[in-house]
Write a protein that binds this DNA or RNA. Sequence first.
DNA 1: TTTAGGG
DNA 2: CCCTAAA
Length: 532
Amino acid sequence: MERREAKRIRKPTKRYIEETSDVGSRESNGRLVSLVELGKRIAHQEESTRSEGMNTSQSQNLEACSSSQGRSIGIDASTSGGSITKPDFSMLKGEICLDNLSIKDLQETFKATFGRETSVKDKQWLKRRIAMGLTNSCDFSTTTFIIEDNRVVKMFKGETSKSSAASEDLIAEAGNETSGGLTDVCDKEINVHSDSDAKRPESSLLECNSVGEDPNVEQRVAKRVRKPTKRYIEEISEGESRESSGRMITLVRSSENGQQSAKSVARPFQHSQQEGRPTVTRQDSFGGSGVQVPFVSRVRRSRPRENFMTLAKLQLDDIGTSTKVVKKAFEEPARMAHDDAGNNVLKASLSPKWIGQPLIAVSEEGKHHPERIVEHENDMELKSINSFGYKSDDSNVVNMPAPMGGMRRKHHRPWSLTEVVKLVEGVARYGAGRWSEIKRLAFASYSYRTSVDLKDKWRNLLRASLTQLPAENGMQNSRKHASIPIPAPILLRVRELAETQAQVPPNISSSKFAGHSGGTDRNSQETRPGYL
DNA sequence: TTTAGGG
DNA sequence: CCCTAAA
């Protein structure tokens, strides 16, 4: 329990949070830049008192340049700056003033809002329409930048009122260019925008920004390379989901109103992906559709592992992965054949069959339950145990059907008594925890049984020795269970060893386990403690 | 890769 | 058994 906590709490979380939030900060930083620039430009424009026409065009530019937030900022600027006085924006603060306007005014407002004329005379309709349009645009813009918003806006406002001095600073800091130069750059950008209007995915506010102040941004992009572990993806996505989902909404929204902003917002991800390893966006090449999936579609809990693998193997003919799988799959039978050389039994007849087996038919087989094939083997086990000759048993060349099932679960291989004994011996000799050692020395002939398996088995043995030992008098040979109980002596030994090596949890001991084993058998995955 | 633990 | 985190 304690260990678990320690394990779970560890820093990776922190690190990943850092990394992931980095995206956010980078992005918001980008926004910030644009806002700063906006402020700059506003200030500049105020300073040089341009003509009315220029003003309006500028405000449009603002919108275009800063995409989503541009909207609200532009509005804010015009209201707070006060230099822009087009009647269109008289209701910028929302639908507040709509009531006071005449139909004609409303129509004009409509035009200003939606960019098209309307002949509707219905005051209510107009108001509703305008209000909707406004709230839409404002809405998503406000949801887009949350934290930075206040700060930025605040600074921005102060700057506009203060005019030149502050703006000079910003300008110098931003790009050691003259303000004219900067505006020129942006103006250019904007012209491009307005030329092709909606159909320009590439050019974006980000580019506009990076013109002024990119190095930081670039660095951050480059920094974000590592792809979090799936587990972590799931976990942090919990915290991040808000942000990402918000962004998704933004994308949708903006694509339904100002087109180009969508692409521009989404762009950083693509960028970082090109930069190196896949990061936040992934190319899901399922079925060759090649769809870009933003973040991780956190849809599945539990283990779709095999499914995925088989699926991958089937659907996309990725040579790389599939070959790897196949190779690994083939390894098993080969080794098994080799191992069984020392023993007798039916090795020769079986192994060639596996090797010769085609790679197909595997995927399909994944759905069936191949667990059953073991049955006969148990009988063998029984025999050898009954004779109590702790050997000659587990030459179990289990009739394992095609191991290369696209990474299917290892066929459940019951632990034979000899294996258990060897395990115990191994632990006695090398100590519990030296699983690799034990594996290498005591289990040299059992190619299956990885060190992890040994570890697991030992854990189970331990558990068994703890729970089952007290009652060892009563139900020694009980036929309750189909499988063979582990002989008490062995369990005793296990326990001794465990005590020797301080593996016995002092107080909890049996009660916990007893309660635990009462639970559902979880697909018979977890073998019962006291049995083979 | 190996260990340790949770599932 | 599987999966992962840590080391």
